[in-house]
């Protein structure tokens, strides 16, 4: 009844890829933010798994910090999404392209 560390890391890599794909493919800023949360969580899983493997709880601390930062980032990110899209017709990042060239 034991699980190889490699399995955890592989799982986290899969989540990371799914998250990256979400950022690139989705057009809804909220979903993009959620996809970014997935990427960060993938890193967290890797941290926790490696912490368990090396019995070093620095990984736990790191994951804890990441969660804290993610909370702050989500708050700011959502505030920005609100001010950008409050009066917009579409909630779609493709609509936000005044700056280019």
């Amino acid at each position: 009844m034991s699980v190889a560390l490699a399995n955890y890391i592989a799982l986290s890599a899969v989540i990371f890829m799914i998250g990256a794909a979400g950022v690139v493919l989705r057009r809804n800023p909220l979903v993009m933010l959620m996809a970014i949360e997935l990427m960060w969580n993938a890193a967290n899983l890797a941290f926790v798994a490696y912490a368990r493997a090396s019995m070093n709880n620095a990984g736990h601390i790191f994951a804890f910090l990441v969660i804290t930062v993610a909370a702050a980032e989500a708050a700011i990110g959502l505030a920005i999404v609100v001010i950008v899209f409050r009066r917009a017709e579409f909630v779609d990042v493709d609509e936000v392209s005044v700056l280019k060239g």
């Binding site: 034991s2 699980v3 190889a4 560390l5 890599a13 493997a53 090396s54 019995m55 070093n56």
Partner: peptide, 23 residues
């Protein structure tokens, strides 16, 4: 990324034996 990390036996870090199962 996936292949390198998951399929490589030395992915387990230094303080633990490679690929050692977790209890």
């Amino acid at each position: 990324l996936l292949f390198v990390i998951a399929l490589n036996p030395s992915a387990a870090g230094t303080s633990n034996a490679s690929g050692a199962p977790l209890g």
